[in-house]
Simulated scan of single mutants.
Amino acid sequence: MVENRPILTFFTHAILIAGVLFLCFPVWMALVASTHGPGALSQSPIPLWFGDQAWENYSQLLAGGLPEAGGVPIGMMMFNSLIMALVITFGKIFISILSAYAIVYFRFPFRMGFFWMIFVTLMLPVEVRILPTFDVVVKMGLLNTYAGLTVPLIASATATFLFRQFFLTVPDELVEAARIDRAGPIRFFKDILLPLSRTNIAALFIILFIYGWNQYLWPLLITTDESLYTVVMGIQRMVNSGESLPVWHYIMGTAVLAMIPPVLVVVLMQKLFVKGLVESEK
């Protein structure tokens, strides 16, 4: 039986509330600053409550575009980021789960050798292989295309490793039962492995979506067409606006808008995400 200690409960809740306030304060300041005019953050003291410019600021960001961000509306940048994040996420999951399925359930020459070759690529992130990857993309004519933005980032050794480890925990009795029922490899994969992998897929979906959404270096190299800019690139261009002063109210508004899709994904898939990380028995 757990003892009820009011003083301990009070202090633990106070610490939790203080931690939440500490983490949420920058988000609150970004939201407040996005509703004021351009000179609000230059005042002393800085305003801590909403202003009256929210509609004008967000309308300009979503539809009008800013010269500091290349004149492209933030709505278009968010659409590009969404396409990039979704293609990378679904591509990584699709390729990784098929690769893990082949490595675990098929017997072919050099099977483990191929697995370790995939696993070793964990030591070679995009930043290390970015020059040869860029050269390949240029020779294939994929500059300033969605394919160039996404295809080089699709392969994932981490997801392949995680799916392989999960498939190894699937009881052999399920495989034998599928064989008795004359289920072929495709049916076994579709009707048994995919439903069992649902929580793992959900957990990886959140991680990979945020990874794809926050990509900065690769889109910066692969795109010169302003219509393909991502929202992270837009924030960077507004911050580094050259000799002119940064438009902080627009920068904060763009940061708030950029947080919405990842937050929605985490909130909507939170239960599956937690189950995928902590569930040990399927």
Rank of each mutant, 00 (worst) to 15 (best):
L153S: 10
L168I: 14
V175N: 11
Y229G: 12
A157K: 03
F209Q: 04
L194S: 09
I206E: 10
I210V: 15
R179A: 15
N214V: 10
V151P: 02
A178T: 02
F188C: 00
V231K: 00
I206M: 11
T158K: 07
Y211S: 15
I180T: 13
L193P: 05
M233V: 14
A177Q: 11
Y211K: 12
T158R: 07
R198A: 15
Q215N: 13
P219A: 13
G234M: 02
I186C: 07
A147I: 06
Q236R: 12
V170M: 02
W213T: 08
L153I: 14
G148I: 01
A202V: 15
T145N: 05
A147E: 06
F205N: 09
L174N: 07
W213H: 04
I210F: 07
A147H: 02
I207K: 06
P195H: 06
P195C: 10
V232R: 08
M233G: 07
E226K: 13
F188H: 00
V151R: 00
S227I: 10
W213N: 03
L194D: 08
T145M: 04
N214H: 08
L196I: 14
V231W: 00
P152G: 09
I235H: 03
A203I: 11
T145E: 03
R164I: 08
L196R: 07
F167M: 03
E176F: 00
Q215A: 14
T224C: 04
M233S: 07
R182M: 12
I180S: 05
L217E: 11
L168N: 12
I210E: 13
L194Y: 04
A203H: 04
R187Q: 07
T150D: 01
S156T: 07
A159G: 06
L228D: 01
G234H: 01
T150R: 00
V231H: 01
L149A: 08
V151T: 03
F189N: 00
R164Y: 11
D225G: 09
L149N: 02
A155G: 11
T150I: 05
Y216E: 12
S156M: 02
A155L: 09
P171G: 05
R164L: 10
A183E: 13
G184Q: 04
T199D: 15
V151S: 02
V170Y: 01
L149M: 12
I207Y: 08
Y229V: 12
G212K: 01
Q215D: 14
I201T: 15
L204W: 08
T169H: 08
D225Q: 09
P171K: 06
Y229F: 12
A183L: 12
L162E: 08
T145H: 01
T158C: 08
F163C: 07
I180D: 09
D172F: 05
L217K: 04
I192M: 01
R187N: 04
T145V: 06
S227H: 12
I192P: 00
Q165E: 13
R198W: 09
F161W: 12
I206V: 15
E176N: 09
P185H: 11
L208H: 12
F209E: 10
A177D: 11
D181L: 05
L149D: 03
A202E: 14
R198M: 12
A183G: 15
T223G: 03
L228R: 00
N200K: 11
R164T: 14
P152I: 10
A155N: 09
T169W: 02
R198P: 04
S227A: 13
A183D: 10
F209M: 05
P185K: 06
N214Q: 11
F189Q: 00
L174R: 05
L149V: 11
Y216C: 13
A157W: 03
F163I: 10
